[in-house]
Design a protein around this nucleic acid. Structure first.
Lengths: 181, 181
DNA sequence: CGCTACATGTAATGAGTTACATGATTTT
DNA sequence: AAAATCATGTAACTCATTACATGTAGCG
């Protein structure tokens, strides 16, 4: 359950509501982590019960009441412990590779077109990541630039997209020049 | 539920028991798909009930009775349909990147050592994939070589490992030469 | 005597998605 | 008038892991 630790990480910077946490997620780690509100709310509740957070209700006039969560010392310790201990790599399932593996069962043109579609998506992603990397969101001053660790996660995305783009291209070529089908 | 389609893919080649399917999984697609027996058995049962497979019990003397599953026309059609329709990329969660993202919270040496550990694992994986790629597990004749589509999945693994290895190396360097901590 | 291979499952738990439910205010 | 923003949740369901449960045969 890494969601817990991600929440601790963000709350360690600033106390927030679940709703705000969702927005922070989407702005910063969306490319390698996603969490829905219907997962965030119960998790925050659980964490509060476990003593990792405290909660305080902010009564508001023009918007619904908000529950502001604050990390406790115990929460900070939990986060630190998780960050320090090595995390074994999880083998990620890749359904697309299952398709490729059984590709011989259908017309090769249909496989190639799926690869081409993915290639396009990956190229868009790469462009997006490169923009983030170049820090150039224009309306942000240089002060808002990425920290070392934040930039490393973007670099990961870039390397990853470059690798898959290269694989898509080579795969398309190999399939199209193949004899069978 | 891609497990279903993977099972259909393998059963489309040859009728098998759940136990044998597990072994085939582990020998061919382990690097991008994993399935436990306690997941395979109920899934096969469900698929039989859905008419995608038929089952026949083979009574054996020296080993337990075996349930041999065979794909039906309906199953073949289901597989074909899945292979043909585009599959939207699933955003994969990466807990390790969450760690990196919050890396500033702990001593940079502790982050670097985790990266070095991962680098080692990735280098081992790359070597393994390259051996498979070279097909040439020596005791196999060229007939046993990989089909085009099988080899593409191995290429994916190689490209992927090369990318992460490069990222690990650059990240370690950047972290170690950084001022903070 | 213990380990591996063969062969099947169930039950409990965890993680995450999707659908459902509510309701005010502000922007287009 | 419709959509988005703020703000909270619950319930049902899916997918996968881990633990539990059984039992024979063959090998070292």
């Amino acid at each position: 359950m890494s969601l817990k630790y991600a929440l601790l990480g963000f709350l360690n910077c600033k106390s927030m509501t679940g709703y705000q946490l969702k927005k922070v997620f989407d702005k910063s780690v969306r490319n390698f982590w996603n969490a829905s509100l219907s997962q965030i709310y119960p998790t925050l509740n659980q964490m509060k019960n476990d003593g990792l957070l405290t909660m305080e209700i902010k009564y508001q006039e023009s918007s619904p009441n908000a529950k502001i969560y604050t990390i406790t010392d115990s929460g900070r310790e939990e986060l630190r412990k998780w960050l320090i201990e090595p995390l074994e790599p999880s083998q990620h399932r890749n359904a697309f590779l299952i398709k490729i593996f059984f590709g011989a069962n259908i017309d090769k043109v249909l496989i190639a077109s799926q690869l081409k579609h993915r290639l396009e998506l990956a190229e868009n992603n790469l462009a997006k990541y490169q923009q983030i990397r170049n820090g150039i969101t224009e309306n942000h001053s240089s002060e808002d630039g990425l920290t070392l660790f934040e930039s490393l996660t973007v670099d990961y995305g870039i390397k990853n997209m470059e690798a898959v783009i290269s694989w898509y291209k080579e795969s398309i070529e190999k399939i199209e020049s193949s004899q069978s089908n």
